[in-house]
């Protein structure tokens, strides 16, 4: 039940993009087509899960015991940056097809605040064990994927619409994202987060 609450809470109620405003750059940047949106979501799922596991372990067994939590920001970003490089190298060797699909998105992920954001949110929850942290990270990544794909689908339609000149491109996309966020507000109260 506890896990169910975490999953529903992360995907729908406090959706990482539409409720917590994390990962807006890829949300607006690579959501032009459904295919690229899915590719980006896959890469985020992959890196977010690994990054959360590693940063959770670092926080729990290095930063807190030695009383150096002020190094959190600097150590997390270094871990994430090197992790992304590592994932890229391993993926290239082990699974070329997966690398083909996700490769171009990986370098973009270092500065994707969703990864760092979820890592920080996870370590801020005192009652989380490692399994809960993993479930939380995966659910957030699914929430990201859901928002991305929905938005990409909407934007493909937007291209065919007759939008007033000043609103074309980013402004109308932001308004659409706002309405989508409003729709997600309907999930409020589904579970207590």
């Amino acid at each position: 039940m506890e896990y169910f609450v975490i999953i529903i809470g992360a995907i729908f109620v406090s959706n990482i993009v539409l409720h917590q405003y994390l990962g807006i750059c890829p949300f607006l940047g690579v959501s032009g087509k459904v295919n690229t949106a899915i590719g980006m979501s896959g890469a985020v799922l992959f890196v977010m899960t690994i990054a959360t596991i590693v940063t959770w372990i670092i926080q729990k067994y290095v930063l807190v015991p030695y009383g150096i939590t002020f190094l959190q920001t600097i150590s997390f970003i270094l871990v994430i940056a090197s992790l992304v490089q590592l994932v890229e190298i391993i993926l290239k060797k082990v699974s070329p097809p997966l690398y083909q699909a996700l490769g171009i998105f990986l370098p973009l992920i270092t500065t994707n605040c969703a990864i760092m954001g979820v890592a920080l949110l996870t370590v801020a929850k005192p009652d989380f064990n490692l399994l809960k942290a993993v479930v939380f990270a995966i659910s957030n990544a699914i929430g990201f994927a859901l928002a991305m794909t929905l938005f990409a689908g909407l934007r493909e339609h937007l291209d065919l619409m007759d939008v007033p000149k000043g609103m074309r491109g980013v402004p109308i996309a932001l308004v659409v994202a706002g309405i989508l966020a409003m729709a997600f507000m309907g999930f409020n109260g589904l579970v207590k987060v």
Binding site: L18, Y21, G166, V170, P171, L174, V175, G178, I179, M185
Partner: peptide, 20 residues
């Protein structure tokens, strides 16, 4: 609603349009 998430997206969208 303007203090909540949807308002942020919508206001930014319109501000960009006005600035253009």
């Amino acid at each position: 609603v303007f203090i909540l998430a949807p308002g942020a997206f919508i206001v930014l969208g319109y501000l960009i349009a006005i600035l253009r």
